[in-house]
């Protein structure tokens, strides 16, 4: 297929921004691993803000690409690639993306970024607990942590969702995204 110069430019621009998002997500992923952590595995999931942004601007595929790249590159940076910590983030990430995809597909335009973020946080928690009980700890008593994790997911989900919503609004003002419409958010609710 022969594409016009404009289309090629648009593609390059998309890739550059995707790379920037991934870099940011990796930064947040690493930052979170460095933060003092009173309870193991309690992560605010700041990187999910970028996943939501990618979902909003580039759609489901963008979100998956961003999340998976973020986890692999981030783990490589921290130095726990293919270790138990990596396994936990990987399964958390996949769980988050699965639930967010389901939410985006099933609820289409009714759902906003906050709702998607909540689904992501819940999927993250469930994915982590599942893999933790199956492989890492191998004891079902780990599920006793589920309520605490769900409450945590509620709080971090809302905060991340609002942050993502603000970020997307801000980005859409940028000339690079002037052609994009916001995929998920209040703008489409009343429509």
């Amino acid at each position: 297929m022969i594409s016009s110069a404009d289309e090629q430019l648009e593609q390059i621009r998309q890739r550059v921004f995707m790379a920037l998002f991934i870099a940011l997500a990796v930064g947040l992923h690493t930052l979170e691993a460095l933060l003092p952590n009173p309870l193991p595995w309690f992560r605010v999931g700041l990187a999910n803000i970028l996943a939501l942004t990618a979902l909003s601007i580039y759609g489901l595929k963008g979100m998956w690409v961003l999340s998976l790249s973020r986890i692999f590159i981030g783990s490589l940076l921290i130095g726990n690639l293919f270790g138990p910590g990596f396994l936990l983030s990987f399964c958390g990430g996949v769980g988050a993306c699965l639930l967010m995809s389901a939410g985006a597909l099933l609820l289409k335009r009714g759902i906003g970024l906050v709702g998607l973020s909540l689904l992501g946080a819940t999927g993250h928690v469930c994915g982590q607990l599942l893999i933790a009980s199956l492989v890492v700890v191998q004891h079902q008593s780990i599920w006793l942590l589920l309520p605490a994790f769900l409450f945590f997911a509620l709080i971090s989900g809302v905060i991340n969702g609002l942050a993502a919503d603000l970020l997307v609004d801000y980005l859409l003002k940028h000339p690079a995204f002037c052609d994009c419409r916001k995929g998920f958010g209040r703008h489409h609710v009343e429509g």
Binding site: V114, G115, L150, A153, G161, R186
Partner: peptide, 28 residues
């Protein structure tokens, strides 16, 4: 203005997750 960023579905989801959290707490 922050609350305005949440759609009605979002609010339902908040409620739902709260419910799920309490339910799992009760279960545990």
């Amino acid at each position: 203005s922050l609350l305005a960023r949440m759609t009605r579905t979002d609010r339902w989801l908040v409620l739902l997750l709260m419910l799920a959290a309490f339910a799992s707490l009760w279960f545990v």
